[in-house]
Amino acid sequence: MRPQTRWLTLSACGAVLLCGGAVRVVAQEAHVDRLTGRAAAGKPLYTRYCAGCHGDEGDSRGENTQWIDPKPRDFTLATFKCRSTPSGTLPTDQDLYNSVTRGFVTTNMPPWVALTPHNRIDLVAYIKTFSARWSTAKPGTPIAIPPEPAPTVQGILHGRELFQRLECWKCHGAAGHGDGPSAKTLTDNKDDPIRPYDFQTGTRFMCGTTNQDLYRIFMTGLDGSPMPSFADQLQPAQAWDLVHFLRTLQPLKTPEATIWRAWFTTHGRELKPIGQEGGGQ
């Protein structure tokens, strides 16, 4: 393209944006792998499948919203729980695509696997037209997750100390039942009540199922919810220790739970209880 032509193209784009005025400022595309999603293609899908809860304007005021708890995401805020990026930054297209694909367990958001991958990425492109932040800011850099070490009793014990020291128990409870002293007063960024994850249920997590997902959840935090980011507080080795300890709180046959239960039957009594007076050691 000759410089002059390029300039003309740029000015044309500028004019379109200006003419857009009060209309949404936009990021019209989304990319995952080799797929390119287009907002124009996502719009009719959104109207058909999403607007009932998320609202025509993406403001979470759909006709079903009043019956739903927790409330649907308000896309006009561009604040998302499930991200691979640091707290306060926009998620990647892949993050949004994963959320649409996976749905949110224990909420009214189903997994949209019935839609084709191309439909889903078109929807992601359309969701990004609801907030001007998508044109003023870039997604954050995904946090690095180093390879997972094998779980050990020592590591799990260390993770348990972190659970005490970082005060995870204040919301998630000493045994991870989601019944800590602050659990009942938790509200999200719209002042709606929200519950911390109850490890005893053993259900999938809000943002995935794997140990990597668990690592990512507490390192990035779930923006909009009370769950903060611990990225500044944990080194990777510590974060993995915490992951392995958290797995022992679930009634699942995980490798972590197996080695922990074997150790616990003989040494469990030596442990200080977790909680206000406890040392967690």
């Binding site: 604040t79 707290s87 926009l90 800011a137 020291r165 909009g224 009370p226 903060p228 980011s229 500044d232």
Partner: peptide
């Protein structure tokens, strides 16, 4: 942008 960070005892 909204953010939410944990700041334990003694954290910088």
């Amino acid at each position: 942008p909204e953010w939410n960070k944990s700041q334990p005892k003694g954290a910088p």
